[in-house]
Design a protein around this nucleic acid. Structure first.
Length: 263
DNA sequence: ATGGCTAACATGGTTAGA
């Protein structure tokens, strides 16, 4: 049976308006079929729809003023779009799901949590619990599922440049790692770790203190796939290059490739 | 060393990120 390559990406752009040139340049040099964005930071009425269209992408978005905001884009139709987590009242625009080339893609911007003793951390944990039950439903409904985005959780110590310094902090704390493990228990696989990777592979580096140059980062941007889709995965990498450019996002894009059987 | 930098909103300084 013949197959076609499907390259799926996630990128926290930290303001789509500021990062449109970066997205444009990156898409020109990368062969991307579907893309989830986070932190678009724009209301839907001001989403740069014509610019996105000029890049050969269609899709849907779910934004709000100032903060958060997600978009799900593809070279071919994005259908059956759902915004937010159904049944979970959330003023923050953090999730958009849709079907592209037969793959159900759920694009997430998980709350940061600020610090483990804050209300925002409690919100993060309740948000992750709601996401888990949503994903259980989605996994029951769709044969091929990808959950992508900025998870704001570094799964393991090898995903943290200085695990000792970060121990117990938000993004690595036990409770949120358990919440991420609960997604794995649904059968979702962090496909990045299915392949050999360079040492110190991260997807986010602080703007401050030359963190990028010092390779002082975290891997918090993930592509999770269910078993059926994982079986079709042929690779996953962090595309570090855009983090080197002028005025970059603090996150780099992550790309996974899949050999999808032809219809 | 609890800062360092960036973006939105606003137009000086706060909120938020991670």
């Amino acid at each position: 049976m013949s197959s076609t390559e499907f390259r799926l990406a996630t990128w926290n752009v930290n303001s789509l308006k500021v990062r449109l040139p970066h997205l444009t340049q990156w898409l020109q040099q990368s062969d991307i079929h579907a893309l989830g964005l986070q932190e678009t930071k724009t209301v839907d009425a001001e989403f740069p729809a014509s610019e996105i269209s000029a890049l050969g992408l269609v899709g849907q978005w779910h934004g709000q003023k100032t903060y958060n905001g997600v978009a799900l884009l593809g070279r071919s139709e994005v259908s059956a779009v759902v915004r937010g987590i159904p049944g979970f009242a959330d003023e923050q625009a953090r999730v958009i799901a849709g079907t592209i080339r037969g793959v159900r893609v759920i694009d997430c911007y998980v709350p940061n949590g600020q610090s483990v003793d804050s209300e925002k951390y409690a919100y993060k944990l309740s948000w992750l619990a709601a996401l888990r039950s949503y994903l259980a439903d989605e996994l029951a409904r769709h044969s091929h599922v990808a959950v992508i985005g900025d998870f704001n959780i570094a799964p393991e110590d090898r995903d943290v440049h200085d695990p000792k310094a970060w121990e117990g902090q938000v993004l690595v704390s036990v409770a949120e790692r358990e919440a991420l493990a609960a997604l794995s228990e649904l059968g979702l696989v962090d496909v990045f770790r299915r392949f050999e990777q360079p040492e110190k592979s991260y997807s986010w580096w602080d703007y401050r203190a030359m963190a990028f140059r010092r390779k002082a980062g975290l891997r918090i941007d993930l592509i999770l796939a269910n078993q059926a889709l994982t079986a079709l995965c042929t690779g996953c990498i962090v595309e570090v290059e855009p983090r080197r450019w002028e005025r970059p996002s603090d996150h780099a894009p992550v790309v996974a490739s899949f050999a999808l059987p032809d219809a």
